[in-house]
Design a protein around this nucleic acid. Sequence first.
DNA 1: TTAATTTGTGTAAATAATACACATTATTAC
DNA 2: GTAATAATGTGTATTATTTACACAAATTAA
Lengths: 244, 244
Amino acid sequence: MTKNSSESKSPKTLKGLQSEVQSINRIALSVDCVIFGFDDEKLKVLLIRSDLKKFQSKWSLLGDLVKPDEDLQASAYRVLKQRTGLKDVYLEQVHTFGKINRHPAGRVVTVAYCSLINSRSHRLKILDNELHWHDVDTVTELAFDHQKIFENSYDWLKKRIQEHPLGFNLLPNKFSLRQLQNLYEAILNITLDRRNFRKKFFAMDFLIDTGEEEQNVPHRPGKLYKFDYDKYEKNKKTWSGIDF
Amino acid sequence: MTKNSSESKSPKTLKGLQSEVQSINRIALSVDCVIFGFDDEKLKVLLIRSDLKKFQSKWSLLGDLVKPDEDLQASAYRVLKQRTGLKDVYLEQVHTFGKINRHPAGRVVTVAYCSLINSRSHRLKILDNELHWHDVDTVTELAFDHQKIFENSYDWLKKRIQEHPLGFNLLPNKFSLRQLQNLYEAILNITLDRRNFRKKFFAMDFLIDTGEEEQNVPHRPGKLYKFDYDKYEKNKKTWSGIDF
DNA sequence: TTAATTTGTGTAAATAATACACATTATTAC
DNA sequence: GTAATAATGTGTATTATTTACACAAATTAA
């Protein structure tokens, strides 16, 4: 194997390295957002029709190229903002996909971000019929390698939500325990015991009783709770080590 | 906000996209490997003196620019191979770091990989005194943003090793349960009950009794075991959802 | 042969997870 | 306005998992 300059062990000048960084060694970098929403008792993911002719009939994740003067995460927030009109939403990096031929237009490495949004608040904004919420269990054959990215992100979410109470990001500010349980059941695709579920969440002690109740339900109304973000942020570290 | 071509919603030709991908929108991409080893009852990480003058006195992770025709993971394997002479080692992507000013030579986005190697097998190869194993608890002030990358990777490892039996990658092919326990204690920085530890590992049923025993120990010799990689691979999916 | 050191093993107690039923509160239909 | 419907709100017994803990056996070194 021949040694090129980047493998050499002699100290480099900053200038030398700069020319390497600015050389042909550059690659297009994109972000793709897997945007989850929860509505109608179902977990949804926001997809757009591919704007590439080759994939005309296929759906794809929302993404864009990262600009050279833009933070990676800022880039993901930009995509979110453009497509949903929302900012200050939950967003977390999941994985980077870099197979050489994953994109037909050339080498594009993409960083996948997972976002959770409360689909009530955004609904207004989506008038574009090229943009659509899909039930997660009907998502198949996305464009590019987006099917794989989606599946990894959904697996990631299933796991992550069992370690951290992220679900609140998918619910309205005030929610009933029934809504919360429906959410968990939809994401994990299981049924849960109501009493044990309630016991578990109360034990976590992140629910604030708003004193309010559900309105206009054809049965006994449930209490409405808020999530105690402050308390969660404070206790987060002592829970479950990792937090990027 | 002005719309540029990548934000337009009209279908694109492949050619149009190609020019975007090949345009100024390109960024230097690197991989950085956090290579863990275990020796002398301590968890170590392999570091190299920064080859950049600005960071002359500082240590850094092992990394290199990704080549345009190289898979991301292949790139990490290349770095590993160059530095340790080892291949077929455990390697997994951890996180991508993309702050604008993280690198003094310009915009470089880096993908961090975590690698676990058995430091016995490699030791031969490391004659370069610019390359050194550091106790993980003495690693401070690495070059670039490598301190952060290291800390995230170490946190990742602590978590990951409690969900998957990765530790075997850090041990010789045949090992005693004491070695295995020392490893877990070193990584997690805790002490464990010997009987419970053994019970737990035997219950997992991934240990193969080799019929051999330790040699030349000044006390009763322990049995030597091998890790059943095949069995682990088969059962992996049914355990713990995610697997990238 | 004795002392020192580490291996190998089981059980009881505490904690966490699961299974399960009925009274209460509201709406709707009659 | 009474009865039927439908969901909320609550506690306990059972099971499974995790933790705490002690002594005999094997080897080396003195």
